[in-house]
Simulated assay, not measured.
Amino acid sequence: MRTRRASARSVPASTRVNQDVEEGSTSIKIDQRKHVSWNFSTQDLTLSIEEYSKRYIAPAMLTLAQTVDSYGSGLYKKIWNRVGTPSTTPSSYASLGAVAQRMTEMAVPRNERRAALTSEAFHKIAGTLTTLNMPKQAADAWASGEIGNIAGFNTHESANIRSHQVGTKACTPLVNGGNQNTAYSASMKTGVQTLSLKGFTASSAGVLREGDVFTIAGVFAVNPVPGEGSTGKTVLPYLQQFVVRQALVNSDASGNATVTIAPAIITSGPYQTVSSAPADSAAISVVGAANQVNSQKLCFHKHALALVTVPLEMPDGCAWKAQESHDGPSIRIVKDYDINSDAEIVRVAVLFGWEAIYPDLAVRLDG
């Protein structure tokens, strides 16, 4: 849930000013049910199976954890802030420093920032630490490839970082019609709006894809913290980025297309997102080359993304069952016996859902 930002009042200092409160909401679908299952004959259990938990339960848990993590990495498609150079690998402090700068400019709290990096980027950055005159950091980098906290990020190496393929960007996209902005009250339930574009190659499929990031000429980002009174927000010296929030965008016979985007284009008030509404025929610039594939490393505040798991019902008919929760996630394990095959059957399962509840608190690191 997100509440409307209020602006601080100071004149006169002693007079209380009542301000409206508007609450948006975010739905989280608990729609991913995954499991790992296996069976052993009672003969195997009698003669050859040892260290059951270490050899079988732990690997099953690891498989489920990797699966859940992979789904979380797919949330990059809902994040519009994106820094770095496509088709390169982040390899220095400067890479994470650029993300930290963007987060600070977007008023993201400095504590509890995390960075999930590809193994290549993680170890390239670690390599730069080995040359520093900082004994602990250099030793950790040499001995175990650890980065630790760098540029304000608690860094993690992940094998589940997703890659993104840019749309065809066929021809030269432009805004189709001026004043395509909206109000917070109209977008607070979804965080998105539609934008009409033109200038694409006629009847072209996949001109844009979900997760594509673009800017609009003349539409600048603003400091999300409200200014004093009615003065509005401070305009930042770079264009606001938007992300495509529909699976595939195709152009019609006239080269036009309607695309769902985030954030919504809000030009005033506490939830203002841009300096001004886009003008008719304003140029659209999509990040990355046409059809280019890039890994999407995720840097985020801990409140940006939410993982929700729900304890599964415990079946009455099985011989043995258990459910464990740790730091939120809940996993169920059940065991039963098949008399026909003289085998013990084990099933480990999790029911979960991911959502980017505050996508403005996250940044994609390109490369």
Rank of each mutant, 00 (worst) to 15 (best):
Q246G: 08
I125A: 00
D212P: 08
C171M: 14
H123T: 06
R162D: 12
N154E: 15
E120G: 00
A221I: 01
S187Y: 10
N160T: 08
I161K: 00
E146V: 11
K233E: 12
T155E: 03
S144A: 13
T234D: 04
V207L: 01
A151S: 05
A257G: 12
A217M: 12
P224Y: 02
V222Y: 03
T190R: 10
I150P: 04
A143P: 00
T201Q: 15
G199W: 04
T128I: 05
T155A: 01
E210S: 05
T172Y: 07
T182L: 09
A183D: 15
K198A: 11
F200S: 10
E228D: 14
N176R: 07
D252A: 12
H123D: 04
K233G: 09
M134Y: 08
A151I: 05
V244K: 08
N133C: 05
D252F: 06
G206N: 07
M134L: 13
H156T: 13
Q193L: 10
V225N: 10
G167V: 09
F200D: 05
D252R: 11
T172A: 13
R245Q: 15
V219Y: 04
N176V: 03
N181E: 04
T234M: 03
S158Q: 11
V225M: 08
N149D: 13
A202Y: 13
V259E: 05
Q137F: 01
T215H: 00
T168E: 11
F153K: 06
Q165A: 15
Q240F: 00
N160F: 04
A217L: 13
Q246M: 14
T215I: 00
T258L: 06
G199D: 11
G227E: 03
V244E: 04
P237D: 02
G178Q: 12
A170C: 03
L248C: 09
P237C: 01
L208A: 13
G218A: 01
T260N: 10
A151M: 03
E146D: 12
G211Y: 07
T131D: 08
V166F: 04
T128H: 00
G227M: 01
N223C: 09
S119V: 06
M188D: 10
V219A: 02
H156Q: 14
G199Q: 09
